[in-house]
Each structure stands twice: as structure tokens, then as C-alpha cells.
Design a protein around this nucleic acid. Sequence first.
DNA 1: CTTTACGTTTACGTAAGCGTCAAGCACAGA
DNA 2: TCTGTGCTTGACGCTTACGTAAACGTAAAG
Lengths: 134, 134
Amino acid sequence: MHNIQVAETWTIAELATEYDVTLRTIRFYEDRGLLTPERRGTVRVYHPRDRVRLALILRGKRLGFSLDEIATIVDMYDTAPGEEGQLVYLLAQIAHRRADLEQRRADLEQTLTDLAEVEARCQADLDALRTRRG
Amino acid sequence: MHNIQVAETWTIAELATEYDVTLRTIRFYEDRGLLTPERRGTVRVYHPRDRVRLALILRGKRLGFSLDEIATIVDMYDTAPGEEGQLVYLLAQIAHRRADLEQRRADLEQTLTDLAEVEARCQADLDALRTRRG
DNA sequence: CTTTACGTTTACGTAAGCGTCAAGCACAGA
DNA sequence: TCTGTGCTTGACGCTTACGTAAACGTAAAG
């Protein structure tokens, strides 16, 4: 008897604990159109798609994007194939995002480099201090 | 006749146009303790140190750090050599920052990878569309 | 049948990061 | 002396991204 892939679902609390965010946060993201869980009666039911989107949203947040920016990014991932105009537009958006991300990467690398330098200086000072003290 | 290095200074407007921020923003950063320009009478006079700090602040912003976080980062750069406790603390801060930045880098790389995949799919769809149309 | 757990909406509160006046001083040129 | 230009300090306003009750529904457990 092999595994039958049943489309798994989650409650809001399950997602909240899994990703360590509050219920309020998840509902807020829905309010902003970032998540669209199913409704069974009044209760929210989250599908794998929602779960993936939440993960993407949080990654976007860690990168410092605003929710509006995140919305456009996340929507790129599951835009329907669509017609030519759509595709061209999407490709342009992607190019724009990539440029943004590469700027960030440059900033990030530079900051890490700077930090390493400060650290070295700092460590040298500390070593000198301890040597002198014997 | 060689160049004599005169400590150059800037007005608030000069810095603002150079870094493309508003006067309000620069004053706000001062209010938050991020900048400490000299005062000649009531007027602010910015020295090279302030200019560097402003650049660091803006880079921090591009990376999505809060001003509070930026404050601790920027202050690392020009903390006096100090005594052992200070140095140890500073090294810990640096380690913490580095961990944060490396998490960001991972997120960033993953996002770029994802984006590349979406782009490829998108481009393929577009090509197919154009081929079919002949 | 009541408690407990878990969900819901509505709505006001808040911290961050500035924007945007308002009102005033100082100095340079016509 | 008037006008303009650039600087100053308040001080209120606005948006984002939630926190934090309040008040209520529902379903299983004791």
C-alpha cells in the first residue's frame, strides 16, 4: 500500500507556529491580497500554495522589501502563462527586480568586507592589550 | 606646488543633493543620533566623517536595516580602540551582524535563483508563442 | 451544560521614517 | 532698504506593518 498524495491543508495556527508569525500577521497579509486561503464556512483553510507564498513573503521581508514590493514579486511566481503582452511585462518586471537584488548584493558584500576589516582591527587591538598585560 | 589637504566641509543642502535625500531626512538622522555635524552659530557644518556616516546609513537602508540597527552598525566603524570589555562586546556585535548579513545573502541568492527560473519559463513561453505565430 | 480551545471580525493603538507647512533669522545683491 | 536665498526650529500629518483588546461563533471534552 503506497502513499496516496492527499492535498494537505493547514489551519491558521499551524502556519503561524510553523513560521513563527502571529495570526494577526497572517490575516494582515490576506487583507493585503498576499494570501487567499479557502473558506470553509468562516474558517480559513490553507493549501500548499498558500504555504509556499507565506514562505516567500517572509523571505522577502528578511530581505527588507515592503509588502507592496513583495506582492509583485510573489505574484510573478504563479502568474498564468498568459498572452504575449503579459509575458513581456513580466520579463521586464523580473529584470527590474534582478537589478534591485544585485544592487543589494553589492551593498551586502561591501558591508561584509567592511565589517571584516573592523573586526580585524578590533581583534588586533584586543591581542595587543592581552599581550601587554601578559 | 602640491595639494594641501584642507579638511573639506559641506552644507546640509550639498550633502542632500549629493546623496539625493531631503534636508528633512538628514536632520532626522541627526535627531536620531546618527549624525553630529558641527555648529557654526546655528548652522550645520558637515565634515568628512559625517559624509562617510551618511553614506553608510544609506547603504544600511538599502539593505533594509532599521535606523536603530544602522546606528549600532555605523557606531562600530568609529568606536575608539577602548578597553578590553568594549572590544569584546564590539566583536560580539560584529559576529551577530555578520550572521544576519549572511542569512540575508542566502535569502538573496535563493531569490535570484528562483527569479532566474521564472524568467526562463517565461521566456520559453514567449518563444513558443512567437514560433507558433510564425 | 458549561468550560476550554480555537477560530472570527471590527477597530483603535503604535513605532518608524520621513513629508509638509509655518514662522523666523542671516546675509548678499539691486 | 527691500528682496531673495538658504538656513533654522517646531509641530502636525501620513503610511506601513502590524499589536492589542473587545466581542462573538463553534465544536469537542469533562
